[in-house]
Amino acid sequence: MLSVEGLNTHYGRAHILQGMALEIGAGEVMVLLGRNGAGKSTTMKSIIGLVRPTSGRIAFAGREIAGQEPHRIARAGLGYVPEDRRVFADLSVMENLEVGRQPPREGLRPWTPGRLFELFPNLGQMRGRPGGRMSGGEQQMLTIARTLMGNPRLILLDEPSEGLAPVIVEQMARTILALKQEGLTVLLAEQNLHFASGVADRATVVEKGRVVWAGTIAALRADEAARSQYLAV
């Protein structure tokens, strides 16, 4: 579904991604793990096109998308949920969803506000509330719902559990599993291995913009050495 090869990205002169590589099959949930500053968010931004990679290939559903503009990549069926949420603070919940709306995609049951409120019941109770006056957890739900309105085939979720209460984190895990049930492919960025192991099939560990470990999540849980080397704080 998504395949990234030899991806290099710079911020000014700083060489952040140094040959990043990934391979996700349709319907899979893959987690990108790594410490702060490892390059998880940069990988996602490079895929969605918010940062222009300097070189490398990104193929999505058989199409080369590296270097294209974000709106084209998004319309090709890639959804992006940023790490700092970025809800439109002045816009109501309904309006936030409207911004994300895109035409239905062939072979997918289109998302509607009604269906999303089944998935996120609390959002349904605050349809008119401005995004700026919602709790962190509610905002996180809203950004995911907003992205789903674009009917993506693959969704990039950047640290959805960050800064949330344990109950909400659990709810988030259930949501991701529900999305997987729907047939959505998910690339998740996380620091929370516990949360990740509950939802992901496979893991890719990043350090300094490179892949240092890849395999199934079960293998990672078994590999004490890798965990302490790459993930321990």
């Binding site: 969605i48 096109g49 918010l50 503009e69 974000p70 709106h71 998004a74 319309r75 992006y80 940023p82 970025r86 439109f88 603070a89 002045d90 816009l91 309006e95 936030n96 409207e98 911004v99 994300g100 709306r101 895109q102 907003r146 992205t147 674009g150």
Partner: peptide, 23 residues
């Protein structure tokens, strides 16, 4: 819808683009 997009772009136009809107 147009107005909603305009207001959203006033707040965060990069995010609007990432949601598939041609800026």
């Amino acid at each position: 819808r147009w107005g909603t997009l305009v207001r959203a772009a006033t707040l965060d136009r990069e995010m609007v683009a990432a949601l598939g809107v041609d800026q």
